[in-house]
């Protein structure tokens, strides 16, 4: 959480606005707060996951961001433009799929995209071909959408969202109903979009594994309230301490080795699996392995010990069931 990349610091200094700012957004329906004082930010090029148990208000939050429903209090700023007071400026920076991508099924994919081209300003003719190629639907453009599979519709949804080159892509449960190949494909698109086009992405999902794999940051909400904002991914941790789980044949002997080794801390023991959880500096790992063999401690496996997002998630949301 303390890691803020250098790039971000620089862009802050340059006065770059966050792509999306939720400012104590509240939505009351019949006296009940569906979304309550929700605030968070998304920066340029960031992939952010919006997590929460069923009924937490994820879809409501997304509908609020896109102006489909009116907020009771607060405001959403998209690239500095208020969605309440400056809707057309604000929404022009957003591309979104909300719940399932629904198209005019009696029309071809191309005709559907043309609809949205006519509804946005300044889209070049060549842009359709560009986004269609990005999502790989070149051969299906003349087919009617009713003949599309769910995966193809999902891809057409992404094409539709990218047409007007938005700064922020909002995807509500993008992998819902896709098969494993489709999910993987979707993940690749999202990476590509964030890296190649420099677009920030907000993904709402209950697939924790998904979020963990591609998001830089997770925003966890429950009962419409923000529970936690956390950074994900240890990709820049090579210089830091790592936590390892080591399976050995003799726990006591191994513990003794670890104690003798400088800079290695024992953080946990799992007797059932005969495992030790240790924390040490990355470059100490080979030394430790050497010490183990010198002490004739049998080493079965060394794995990186990660507390999974699922564990955290259940902790934060009090074990509420996720479906």
């Amino acid at each position: 959480m303390e890691r803020t990349s250098v790039n971000q610091l620089q862009s802050d200094a340059a006065g770059d606005l966050p792509v999306l700012q939720m400012k104590s957004v509240t939505k009351m329906i019949k006296g009940k707060a569906i979304v309550n004082q929700l605030s968070f930010e998304i920066r340029k090029g960031e992939i952010v996951g919006l997590l929460g148990p069923n009924g937490a208000g994820k879809t409501t939050a997304i509908r609020l961001m896109t102006g489909l429903i009116r907020m009771t209090e607060g405001d959403v700023l998209v690239h500095g433009h208020s969605i309440r007071h400056d809707f057309r400026q604000a929404i022009a920076h957003i591309g979104a799929i909300i719940e399932n991508p629904e198209f005019y099924s009696h029309m071809s994919g191309l005709d559907n995209l043309k609809q949205y081209v006519r509804m946005s300003d300044g889209i070049a003719e060549s842009r359709i071909a560009e986004v269609v190629e990005l999502v790989g639907l070149q051969n299906a453009m003349d087919k009617k959408v009713k003949a599309y599979s769910l995966g193809m519709r999902q891809r057409l949804g992404i094409a539709q969202a990218l047409l007007h080159s938005p700064k922020l892509l909002i995807l509500d449960e993008p992998t819902n109903g896709l098969d494993p190949a489709g999910i993987r494909e979707m993940r690749e698109y999202m990476r590509k979009i964030a890296e190649v086009e420099g677009i920030s992405i907000l993904i709402s999902s209950h697939m924790l594994g998904e979020i963990e794999q591609i998001c830089h940051q997770a925003v966890v909400i429950q009962n419409g309230t923000l529970v936690k904002v956390t950074r994900l991914g240890a990709q820049d941790s090579t210089e830091n301490e790592v936590s390892l789980s080591v399976r050995v044949d003799n726990l006591a002997a191994a513990a003794a080795v670890i104690q003798a080794e400088e800079g290695v801390r024992l953080t946990g023991t799992d007797e059932q699996h005969s495992e030790l959880i240790i924390s040490l500096h990355d470059r100490k790992v080979p030394e430790l392995v050497a010490s183990f063999s010198a002490a004739k401690v049998g080493l079965y496996r060394i794995t990186e010990h990660k507390q999974s997002l699922e564990d955290d998630f259940l902790k934060w949301t009090g074990g509420n069931r996720i479906a």
Binding site: F87, R88, I91, E102, Y104, M119
Partner: peptide, 14 residues
């Protein structure tokens, strides 16, 4: 009823 209203209303048009 088709759900297409969502794509329709998230455009830069009032």
């Amino acid at each position: 009823s088709r759900g297409t209203i969502k794509f329709l209303l998230i455009r830069a048009r009032s």
